[in-house]
Design a protein around this nucleic acid. Structure first.
Length: 272
DNA sequence: GCGACAG
DNA sequence: ATCTTGTCGC
C-alpha cells in the first residue's frame, strides 16, 4: 500500500509516489485537473465529443481481469455540499477478477477542491481520486468510480473523466442516476434495465443483491452501457456495492477512523 | 419562473 | 458525501 503524500497538490498538477517494493506501475506526473468550473465544463464538453476505441473485458472469470475501485470519504461531521478545503481520504483497491484477492491498494489524505455541485463532482474530488489511482503499484485493466459517466448534463461525468485522464477504461456505479431515467430491473442478481438520457442508453439499473435496491451502472471512458454492466456483473459479491468499490470504501473509512480516532470530536446529543 | 440535481 | 434510529437476519 502506498501513502504519505498529499493528494491535492499545488498548481493543479497531479502526482503521487508509490510505496516501497517492486513497482509494476509507476506514478506519472504532470497530469492536470481543471481548477475552475468553466475549465471543468470545457474539458467535459471536449471529452464527451471524443470517440476513443471501445474496450471490452477479455474472456470470463479466471481471465485475470484487474478491476480497480476508487472512493473518497470525507471527514465525519459535515453535511450538505461542503466547502473547499474539507478533509478527506481517497482510496483505491485493485481486485483480481472483480471479486478475488486485493492485489494492490492505496489511500491518500486530501483536501476538497470545491463544494459539491451537481454536474461538477469532479471539481470537488477528481484530482484526489486521480492521484490515488496513480499511486497504485498495479495498473488495473478497468476503473470503477462512485460517479456517473455519460449520464451527465455535458455527457462526461467524473467516471468518464477519470478514465480519460488516466488512459483507463472506466465505468460508474452510483446509488441513483443524475439525469437518466429507466424502469426497474428484474429481481435476480445480475438483472439489468436500461437508463436513458434522451435517446441515448447511458447506463443501466443493475440488481446486485436480491434484497437490495438496484445500483445505477454508467457507461464511461471507452465503455458503453452493455460493457459497464458486464464489468459490474463481474464484481458481484455478497454486498449491494460491487466489490472493488466496496473495498476502496472500506479502506478510505478505516483510514479516516484511524486518523480521527486521536482527534475525536466530542459526542453531540442529537436531541439537543 | 421554479424545482431538481452523481457525491 | 454524512447524518441518524430502528429492525431484521446471519
Amino acid at each position: 500500500m502506498a501513502g504519505g503524500s498529499l493528494a491535492t497538490l499545488a498548481g493543479g498538477r497531479i502526482s503521487a509516489s508509490a510505496g516501497a517494493g517492486p513497482a509494476r506501475y509507476r506514478a506519472r506526473v504532470g497530469l492536470a485537473w481543471p481548477a475552475t468550473a468553466s475549465a471543468l465544463d470545457e474539458e467535459q464538453r471536449r471529452l464527451a465529443a471524443l470517440r476513443p476505441e471501445p474496450w471490452r473485458p477479455p474472456g470470463g472469470p479466471g481471465s485475470g481481469l484487474l478491476v480497480a475501485g476508487c472512493f473518497l470519504a470525507f471527514a465525519r461531521g459535515e453535511q450538505g455540499p461542503g466547502h473547499a478545503g474539507d478533509r478527506g481520504w481517497a482510496a483505491a483497491a485493485v481486485v483480481a477478477d472483480g471479486t478475488g484477492p486485493t492485489v494492490a491498494a492505496a489511500c491518500l489524505p486530501c483536501l476538497a477542491a470545491a463544494p459539491y455541485e451537481p454536474g461538477r463532482l469532479g471539481l470537488r474530488e477528481g484530482e484526489a481520486l486521480a492521484a490515488v489511482v496513480v499511486a497504485l503499484e498495479v495498473r488495473p485493466d478497468v476503473l470503477v468510480v462512485d460517479a456517473t459517466g455519460r449520464d451527465h448534463p455535458r455527457r462526461a461525468g467524473l467516471a468518464l473523466h477519470l478514465g480519460a485522464l488516466l488512459d483507463l477504461p472506466s465505468i460508474g456505479v452510483t446509488h441513483r442516476p443524475l439525469l437518466a431515467t429507466g424502469a426497474a430491473p428484474g429481481p435476480e442478481p445480475g438483472d439489468a434495465a436500461p437508463l436513458l438520457l434522451g435517446d441515448d442508453v447511458v447506463g443501466a439499473w443493475l440488481r446486485t443483491n436480491a434484497r437490495a435496491r438496484p445500483v445505477a451502472v454508467h457507461a464511461g471512458w471507452r465503455t458503453d452501457a452493455d460493457t459497464a454492466v458486464a464489468v459490474a456483473r463481474a464484481c458481484l459479491g455478497p454486498a449491494r456495492t460491487p466489490e472493488p468499490l466496496r473495498r476502496a470504501r472500506v479502506l478510505a473509512r478505516t483510514t479516516r477512523a484511524h486518523a480521527e480516532g486521536r482527534t475525536r470530536q466530542p459526542w453531540r446529543d442529537p436531541l439537543r
